[in-house]
Design a protein around this nucleic acid. Structure first.
Lengths: 197, 197
DNA sequence: CCTTGAAATGAACACGTGTTCAGATAAAAC
DNA sequence: GTTTTATCTGAACACGTGTTCATTTCAAGG
């Protein structure tokens, strides 16, 4: 019986996911073959099927893991945040940027490879994404109700803020003109003005 | 000699590009075969090579055409706009939304398939994109110089506004809750506040 | 030391890939 | 009516695809 401590399989699964993640992000899901992934892990293609039922599920699991990490991290922070909508919005803004910058491959895949999911898997990922968006939308609505925010349409402001924040991933490079702290501050300034009364 | 008026080839080239555009947008460049494109046009795969040297160039031409349309449309409007930065920014905002919403397939491809371009073709497309971004950045800098805008960093505000505006394409559907005019107005409101002094 | 069984191999399957090209087709040019 | 010529076909090439599975490997359990 394997799968006791230190068994090979305990380490191969994650290695496969890491290889697939990096290759999918670099070349795209459709352009990466199971043989390429296997080669990166140092194994024959057939061996991958001890860890995943098929290529599509491999992609789905990567996306799902990412979205669940995102949601649970958000919930953790929401629990410690106070009731002030402005403080909650600042926390959301800064955390979104930092979380996404730390996971460029996962973020890239989660946005670009949605169309390679089966309809059922797509629905699953989409519902996780909607849950995350609802976090922000709730903050905005609470702020509007409390009279501290003025947004023309909370639903659309949610889309706008998330698109704006996620856009950081397309241009930010560590060691560039601005530190991550500065980027956070600049975006928070823009978001704050965007919702300002 | 063909290629006089009404020749077959005058109409087949555009038909191929339209079919490729739609298929690339739906399934992704790597997942679409030359035989699928040919099938959509009603022709054998070999015939495509009378119109394009290869699949990669077909993608490049679609992207290039789109980016050049975007830039020349922008230049046309910039020529008639006045000197008031606020009016120029409003025009940019509304025009960006409308132009992009009218071309969802082109926009999708231009964002998602960059990694399938050769380095030379990628550089070409990127330089067109930078030129477009510079249009907005110039408006923002002029507004800051004139004292009518306050943005923490014009370069980053450019990225932020473009990401925010292009995000409309991910959720807007004709016949939904909001008309395109309303969407334009809502986004202009948010952009205006974002750069407000 | 022998048994057990999870994990890896490597070949095979059936089919799809981008691209090429000799030959057929048919419409325009003269 | 004949020649010219752009266009299209259909087969071929060399190789890559995801996935399966009988067989081998080899470390842990007893």
């Amino acid at each position: 019986m394997a799968r006791t401590q230190g068994s090979h399989s305990d380490i191969t699964g994650p290695r496969i996911r890491r290889a697939a993640l990096s290759l999918f992000a670099r070349h795209g899901f459709a352009a990466v073959s199971m043989r390429q992934i296997a080669g990166e892990v140092g194994v024959q293609a057939g061996a991958l099927y001890n860890y995943t039922p098929d290529k599509q599920t491999l992609l789905y699991q990567l996306m799902r893991e990412h979205m669940e990490d995102l949601l649970s991290a958000r919930e953790t922070r929401a629990a410690v945040a106070g009731a002030d909508p402005l403080a909650r919005l600042e926390d959301f803004t800064r955390h979104h940027i930092r979380f996404h910058i730390e996971r460029p491959d996962e973020v890239f895949i989660a946005y670009m490879e949605l169309r390679n999911l089966t309809p059922e898997n797509f629905a699953e990922i989409e519902s996780l994404r909607r849950a995350y968006e609802t976090e922000l939308e709730t903050i905005l609505r609470d702020g509007v109700d409390a009279g501290v925010f003025t947004v023309p349409d909370p639903r659309i402001a949610t889309y706008a803020v998330i698109a704006m924040l996620t856009g950081v991933n397309t241009w930010y490079r560590a060691g560039g003109r601005l530190s991550l702290d500065e980027v956070e501050a600049i975006y928070w300034d823009m978001v704050r003005k965007l919702v300002m009364v």
